[in-house]
């Protein structure tokens, strides 16, 4: 008989409490997705920066006349030679016409006749990690060897992408914040309703000598139980959604490490899964703290 001790306040049957697990579940689900978006954006930016920061592309424009055409290979050769001699450059490889054709294939189609088109030739340059290269001076020297050659360090493109990714991060963080605020509001509402419904029992507990903290503990315990249920449900749904996304990402044609699909795919490591697992735990702690503080605040206004 002693082990069947019930809570002093019959909070379990409250209508306002009945919906709290579902609300928390939705909040945790959204928060898990938002935090996952935040982590994915950070990871993608990191990967882009890693993939692009150590490379350069030199573009040698097509000749303007037929005479120049004979000099094209010579200009490319000189440019490659110059690049390989440049301190900080690990390798410089000119893309063959076939490789250039393959690059254009997605836009022009497989059978496109590009021989007559003024297509520039590209030189793929890899830098030694950590090396400092004066790009402006290098571009000047390149122009002397191969007139019209330009150097692209991907900075502007990368900058745009990073800005985009940072915006995604900011939106994800805002969603997490809004979800947390909505969760707090739901708990506060449930607590206030509970206080109103059980006013008589609370008065009695006070008269018997209960401190506000004793009553707040009852509400906090109830918030813990309900938010635990909701958080588990939300975490399962959120985790399931992320695994599904990862599976879809894993099935994309991402075998080629340079493929855009691979750069955009999401994949979480152990540290990131721990952060995601902390979301439902944070939701439970937030619910319990909100319930306790709300009750303490409301009771402190009583006589």
């Amino acid at each position: 008989m002693f082990w069947r001790r019930h809570s002093d306040l019959p909070l379990r049957g409250d209508a306002s409490s009945r919906f709290l697990p579902w609300i928390v579940a939705v909040m945790v689900f959204l928060a898990v997705l938002a935090v996952a978006g935040l982590l994915a954006a950070q990871e993608v930016v990191g990967r882009w920066q890693w993939a692009l920061s150590g490379t350069l592309t030199v573009q040698v424009p097509p000749p303007v006349d037929a005479a120049g055409a004979t000099n094209m290979e010579d200009r490319i050769g000189k440019a490659v030679e110059l690049l390989r001699r440049t301190p900080g450059v690990a390798s410089a490889e000119a893309l063959s016409e076939a490789e250039t054709r393959a690059l254009l294939e997605p836009w022009l189609g497989a059978g496109a006749a590009i021989d007559g088109l003024p297509v520039p030739r590209l030189i793929d340059v890899t830098l030694i990690p950590g090396a400092t290269v004066d790009f402006a001076a290098l571009e000047g020297r390149l122009a002397a060897q191969a007139p019209g050659a330009t150097l692209d360090d991907h900075g502007r493109w990368l900058g745009d992408l990073v800005r985009l990714a940072r915006s995604v991060e900011a939106v994800a963080a805002a969603i997490v914040l809004l979800v947390a605020l909505a969760g707090i509001a739901a708990v506060v509402f449930a607590v206030r309703t509970g206080l109103a419904i059980h006013r008589e029992v609370i008065d009695l507990l006070h008269l018997i000598g209960a401190r506000d903290s004793y009553i707040a503990r009852e509400f906090a315990r109830q918030a813990f139980t309900l938010s635990l249920l909701g958080s588990l449900l939300g975490a399962v749904l959120g985790g399931g959604a992320l695994l599904a996304l990862q599976t879809i990402g894993g099935n994309s044609p991402a075998g080629d490490p340079e493929a855009l699909a691979d750069m955009l795919s999401i994949g979480f490591d152990a540290r990131e899964w721990i952060i995601l697992a902390a979301v439902p735990i944070a939701a439970i702690l937030l619910s319990v703290a909100t319930a306790r503080l709300s009750v303490m605040r409301a009771l402190s206004r009583l006589v």
Binding site: F2, H6, P10, V201
Partner: peptide, 9 residues
């Protein structure tokens, strides 16, 4: 008395 609690509680 608190109705949902047993006599003992």
């Amino acid at each position: 008395l608190i109705n949902h609690l047993s006599v003992l509680d």
